[in-house]
Design a protein around this nucleic acid. Structure first.
Length: 360
DNA sequence: ACTCTGGCTCAAGACGAA
DNA sequence: TTGAGCCAGAGT
DNA sequence: TTCGTCC
């Protein structure tokens, strides 16, 4: 997923668009998050031993809920206001890509069965990761949880990233939080990476400023999109032999892909036959997104009993664990306003020698 | 010398008890 | 699976 | 900090 080499391209050609941010600076900020990506990761990683994952007695997987519950609490505790956006139907352009993935999954499933027979633990582990799939029901369970926790939730008509960008463009959120650089192709004013890393790794948040990208590259939105298509995106192939560096210089020289094609030595650089770059461009320019007209985002207090009924009652989470986590959340609420005052008066002494777990 | 490719590596969540 | 970083090799 | 557990 994403645009190949875009991070490096930007740090070379438009370094000013990247800014490191302190985690603390996201206090009270609203961010749009592509929930599907997170769910997928959790399914992949949480609680797996061999082909086992976390499940309730009915055999329903619960890794995604465990992960999202904890992560959402962490964000709220940190004073961040997340909006979750879920993927809708993938664009038909992605069909080829998706079919490929399905083939691979089928292959992996066969390999998994074989590995089980042979009792090859390592192989079982590897293959079962490859067969991970997020079902419709699992997405809906996460939506249910998010609503119980008082967050705004959206089901995007198409790709979640595009709708995150739309929310940001409409000024409803400060940034889209994503690891996926595609988001910038949708002209998302701000992209925040590593938003959730501080706890586990201490990486700072990395912000990308869309306007600065265009300014420093000295390009229009269309030209930037063309560069991304040439680098390689999800929607279509790219030209062999043309990578990030040539993409930039070619677009600078010719202005767009159409003109570029007229001057390109197609002996050296064979253009893929049936190359739908125009359609790809169109998907970036006019994606199908949630309607933001008159939209208002509201955050409400978590419904503790509702959460307990769902996670403990249906999914067999430990009640004490769930209630404790929610208690911490409540405790953090009071601090939020205090921290805001402190930062307002510039009184925050951020000593990041030890990545501050605040003590009272 | 520069650029792109394709090979390889790595890690990937979060908590709390010890 | 993804990405990022690194290093070899090949093409320009 | 590391490691086992979360369901």
């Amino acid at each position: 997923m994403g645009i190949k080499g875009l991070t490096k391209l930007l740090s070379d050609h438009a370094p000013g668009c990247m800014r490191e941010q302190k985690f603390e600076s996201y206090l009270d900020r609203k961010v749009a998050i592509d929930a599907s990506m997170h769910i997928y990761q959790f399914m992949m990683v949480i609680g797996r031993q061999g082909d086992q994952t976390l499940t309730n007695d009915a055999g329903e997987v619960t890794s995604h809920l465990q992960g999202m519950f904890m992560r959402t609490c962490r964000m709220l505790e940190a004073g961040i206001k997340p909006v979750y956006v879920f993927d809708g139907k993938p664009p038909t352009m992605k069909g080829g890509e998706l079919a490929k993935r399905k083939d691979k999954r089928d292959e992996a499933e066969a390999a998994l069965a074989k590995a089980k027979e042979a009792g090859d633990q390592e192989e079982i582990e590897k293959m079962s990761k490859r067969t991970v799939r997020v079902t419709r029901q699992q997405s809906q369970e996460v939506m249910q949880l998010a609503r119980l926790m008082g967050l705004p939730v959206f089901e995007a008509p198409c790709e979640a990233e595009a709708s995150c960008a739309a929310l940001c463009k409409a000024g409803l959120v400060y940034a889209a939080a994503s690891e996926d650089m595609d988001t910038l192709c949708f002209a998302c004013p701000k992209l925040a990476r590593n938003l959730m890393s501080p706890a586990s790794q201490g990486k700072p948040i990395l912000e990308f400023d869309y306007e600065k990208i265009l300014t420093e590259l000295d390009m229009t939105w269309e030209q930037f999109i063309d560069v991304c298509i040439l680098c390689g995106c999800d929607y279509c192939d790219s030209i062999k032999g043309v990578g990030p560096v040539k993409a930039v210089s070619l677009i600078k020289k010719h202005g767009n892909i159409e003109t570029l094609l007229q001057h390109l030595d197609t002996e050296k650089y064979p253009v893929p036959e049936d190359w739908p770059y125009k359609e790809a461009r169109e998907l970036f320019k006019h994606p199908d997104v949630v309607n933001t007209d008159g939209l208002e985002l509201k955050w409400t207090a978590p419904d503790e009993e509702g959460i307990v009924a769902f996670l403990v009652g249906e999914k067999q989470f430990g009640e004490e664990r769930v209630r404790n986590t929610l208690k911490k959340l409540k405790a953090a609420k009071g601090k939020s306003s205090q921290n805001r005052l402190e930062s307002f008066f510039g009184a925050v002494t951020v000593k990041s020698s030890t990545t501050g777990k605040r003590k009272e």
